[in-house]
């Protein structure tokens, strides 16, 4: 059970076999998480640094929990108390931390390519926990795990990703992962949120959500970020909700079985209605549990097998 990759920087170019191995391993860790004693000694003696240069609650907690369940030693570092504010460079910060002999870095950063850059400076295994508008591979893996759990396969599954595709690392990682796994991906959102040439990644672009809902097996709803408001991408939240919101009214018209996902945090009443988020179709909370399992799998496969 070895991966061809040394780090998890993104899902672009990650082979199908690797993704299958990660998902299979994640399912076995899911069983561990259902046990009364949820801890295994796999990463005993290994040190993991969680470097969060951008605020995050769920991803950080999910990684921490995964690390603790694997018995790793953990160091947490977040930007609000960091030396970066004092003008120290990313390179210096990271090299300082590594001088303390750590094995793995889990990093969240606001800039695309930050995780990749890190691998140039350090020897440790690097796991990207989100780099700006580039990738968020563990999120996509947990999404794929959740889909596979519900549907048994990813092959030929119709997945619709709805919302701000242009600024979404979740969307991009899912597009890379899902297309590798043989799923059919549709992106849907206002044209101002559809990035240049996205169809060349093997996805279909559609603007009519009702039409998309006629054939989608999975609808992944993306968060509308407040900072995009007033920038001219779309005229108002009201119109956005009417055109692209997963509303109760819209869903009532669909007479098919749908799986509804959201990477969180949700803007209830904007991109998704509360009733929809909590409906029988929704697997949003399920995604969260799978998140811990997938992160355990990634840590185990990338770090576990190595001698310190």
């Amino acid at each position: 059970m070895n991966l061809s990759i040394k780090h998890l920087l993104g899902l672009e170019g990650v082979p199908k076999d690797d993704i299958n191995t990660i998902l299979d391993t994640a399912f076995s860790f899911r069983e561990v998480l259902e046990r009364p004693v949820k801890k295994v000694p796999t990463l005993q003696g290994k040190t993991v640094v969680n470097l969060f240069f951008e605020p995050s609650t769920r991803t950080r907690i999910s990684f921490e929990l995964a690390e603790k369940r694997l018995s790793a030693d953990i160091v947490n570092f977040s930007a609000s108390v960091s030396s970066l504010r004092k003008g120290e460079s990313l390179k210096d910060t990271v090299q300082n931390i590594l001088a303390m002999k750590v094995d793995t870095i889990v990093m969240r950063h606001s800039d695309p390519g930050a995780a990749r850059l890190l691998t140039r400076f350090v020897d440790a295994v690097v796991i990207n926990a989100g780099d700006g508008t580039h990738e968020h591979p563990t999120q996509a893996l947990l999404d794929m795990m959740s889909m596979r759990e519900k549907l048994g396969t990813l092959e030929k599954v119709n997945v619709a990703i709805v919302g701000d595709i242009k600024h979404s690392r979740v969307a991009l990682s899912n597009i890379y992962g899902l297309t590798t796994m043989g799923a059919n991906v549709v992106v849907c959102g206002p044209p101002t949120f559809i990035p240049f040439g996205i169809e060349k990644l093997g996805v279909k672009v559609m603007y009519d959500l009702d039409e998309v809902l006629q054939f989608a097996d999975v609808v992944m709803v993306l968060r509308i970020q407040k900072e995009r408001m007033g920038k001219g991408f779309f005229p108002s939240l009201r119109e956005y909700r009417k055109q692209f919101g997963l509303t109760r009214e819209r869903l009532e018209k669909v007479r098919r079985k749908l799986i509804i996902m959201h990477p969180g945090p949700m803007n209830r009443g904007v991109e998704i209605d509360s009733e929809v988020a909590e409906s029988e179709h929704s697997i949003i909370l399920h995604q969260v549990l799978n998140g811990v399992a997938v992160r355990m799998a990634v840590l185990f496969l990338l770090v576990g097998g190595k001698r310190g």
Binding site: G132, H134, L172, P195, G197, I198
Partner: peptide, 13 residues
């Protein structure tokens, strides 16, 4: 440059 490459890399075009 805003292009398919910037889309793939998530970099602002």
């Amino acid at each position: 440059n805003e292009s398919f490459v910037s889309t793939r890399l998530g970099l602002k075009g």
